[in-house]
Lab assay of single mutants.
Amino acid sequence: MSIQHFRVALIPFFAAFCLPVFAHPETLVKVKDAEDQLGARVGYIELDLNSGKILESFRPEERFPMMSTFKVLLCGAVLSRVDAGQEQLGRRIHYSQNDLVEYSPVTEKHLTDGMTVRELCSAAITMSDNTAANLLLTTIGGPKELTAFLHNMGDHVTRLDRWEPELNEAIPNDERDTTMPAAMATTLRKLLTGELLTLASRQQLIDWMEADKVAGPLLRSALPAGWFIADKSGAGERGSRGIIAALGPDGKPSRIVVIYTTGSQATMDERNRQIAEIGASLIKHW
Rank of each mutant, 00 (worst) to 15 (best):
K144M: 04
A211K: 15
G76N: 01
V29P: 13
A276S: 06
P65I: 14
T147F: 03
T107H: 02
G234N: 01
V157L: 05
N272T: 12
T126V: 07
E119G: 14
E145S: 11
V78P: 00
R255H: 10
E270K: 04
D36Y: 10
A222T: 10
Q88A: 08
W208R: 02
N168S: 05
R176Y: 05
T186Y: 13
F70W: 06
S57Q: 06
D155P: 01
L150Q: 07
E35K: 04
G242Q: 02
R189T: 07
D231H: 08
R92L: 12
E145C: 08
V29L: 14
E145Q: 10
P60W: 09
M180P: 04
G234T: 00
A34D: 02
A266M: 13
P65D: 01
L137S: 12
G234D: 01
E270F: 03
A170H: 14
L47F: 14
P253K: 04
D269W: 15
K232W: 01
G194R: 15
A280E: 08
P249N: 07
V101I: 12
G39N: 10
I171L: 15
T262C: 08
A185R: 00
F58A: 11
L191Q: 06
G234R: 01
D207K: 09
S57F: 14
P217A: 13
R41P: 13
K252M: 12
S240H: 04
S254N: 10
E145Y: 07
E166K: 12
T262M: 07
K252E: 09
R273V: 05
V78K: 02
A170F: 05
G279S: 06
K109Q: 15
D36C: 15
K32W: 15
A246V: 12
A183D: 04
C75Q: 01
T186K: 11
S80W: 14
K284S: 12
A215R: 15
S221P: 11
P65L: 03
L28F: 03
G142S: 06
G90K: 08
F58P: 00
N134I: 05
S51F: 15
V117P: 07
R176T: 05
L74I: 14
T27K: 15
L205H: 00
K71D: 00
H156M: 13
R273Y: 04
Y95H: 11
E62Y: 10
W163N: 09
A225R: 09
T186S: 12
S240W: 00
F149E: 13
G194V: 07
A182G: 12
F149M: 15
K53E: 06
R162Q: 15
N98W: 11
N130E: 01
L111P: 12
G263V: 07
L135S: 10
S80D: 15
G76R: 01
L167D: 01
T179H: 00
A276L: 11
L199S: 08
H151E: 04
I93T: 10
I283V: 14
R271K: 07
Q203E: 04
S128P: 01
T139R: 14
A123L: 04
D33P: 01
T69P: 13
Q274F: 06
G248Y: 02
L111T: 06
L89S: 10
L197P: 05
D250L: 04
G239H: 15
S51N: 08
L188I: 15
N173M: 10
I93Y: 06
S57P: 02
Q37W: 06
D177S: 02
S240D: 05
E210H: 07
A246I: 12
F64N: 01
M209I: 02
F70D: 01
E119I: 02
F228H: 11
I171G: 15
E237S: 09
T69M: 03
H151M: 07
E210N: 12
L192D: 01
T178V: 04
K213Y: 04
M209W: 03
T131R: 02
D231V: 14
H110F: 14
R59G: 13
W286E: 03
Q88S: 10
D250Q: 04
T198L: 09
K32N: 07
K190V: 11
N130H: 01
H151D: 04
R238L: 13
F64M: 13
N98R: 09
S68Q: 00
Q86D: 12
P172R: 06
L100R: 11
L219P: 05
G43I: 01
L282A: 12
C121D: 01
M153Q: 06
N173C: 06
K190W: 06
S96E: 11
G90S: 09
R63K: 11
I275L: 15
L28D: 10
G114E: 04
P181N: 00
Q97S: 09
T147E: 04
R202G: 09
S80M: 13
D174L: 11
L73N: 09
K232M: 00
R118V: 14
R118C: 14
L247S: 02
K252Q: 05
Q97M: 13
S68E: 00
G85R: 09
E164Q: 00
A266E: 08
Q203H: 03
M184Q: 05
P165N: 10
L55R: 14
A84R: 13
H151F: 03
A235P: 02
I283G: 13
V106N: 06
T193M: 15
V106A: 15
L28T: 08
A245Y: 01
R81E: 05
K190F: 08
R255A: 08
M184F: 08
I283N: 09
K252A: 10
T126Y: 05
R273N: 04
I244T: 11
T112I: 15
E277G: 12
D155S: 02
D269Q: 10
D231T: 11
D212T: 10
M180D: 14
D177W: 00
T138W: 14
H94F: 05
A183C: 08
G279Y: 05
S221I: 14
E46C: 10
T193E: 04
L111F: 11
Y103H: 06
S128R: 00
L196N: 12
E102L: 06
K252S: 10
D269V: 10
G194S: 12
L150F: 13
Q86W: 13
V101Q: 06
L282P: 01
I243E: 15
L55H: 14
N168R: 07
E164T: 01
T27G: 10
D269C: 13
M268Y: 09
I206Q: 04
L73Y: 09
N272D: 12
I140R: 03
S254W: 07
E145D: 13
W286F: 06
T138N: 15
K190A: 15
V258H: 00
G85A: 10
R255C: 09
N130F: 01
T138C: 12
A222W: 08
C75V: 06
L74R: 00
P165I: 05
S96M: 10
A222Y: 05
R118M: 06
M67K: 02
Q204S: 09
E166Q: 09
A185W: 00
K53Y: 15
P60Q: 04
N50L: 10
P172G: 07
L55N: 13
M127I: 09
M115I: 05
S80C: 13
L282E: 13
L160E: 02
V72D: 00
K232H: 00
A34L: 07
D83P: 02
E35F: 02
L167R: 00
V31N: 02
V214K: 15
V78I: 15
A215M: 15
V78T: 09
E119T: 12
L38G: 10
D129T: 01
V257A: 10
A84K: 15
R63Q: 12
L196W: 13
D83N: 11
E35Q: 07
A200P: 11
V157P: 03
Q274I: 09
H156Y: 13
G216R: 08
V258G: 07
H285V: 11
R92P: 13
C75R: 01
D129K: 00
R220W: 03
S96K: 11
P143E: 07
D174V: 07
L205G: 00
D113Y: 07
L247C: 11
K30Y: 04
L160D: 03
I256W: 02
G43P: 00
E108C: 15
A77Q: 04
A124S: 07
P217Q: 13
L100M: 15
V82Q: 09
F58R: 12
I229F: 13
A124M: 14
R241L: 14
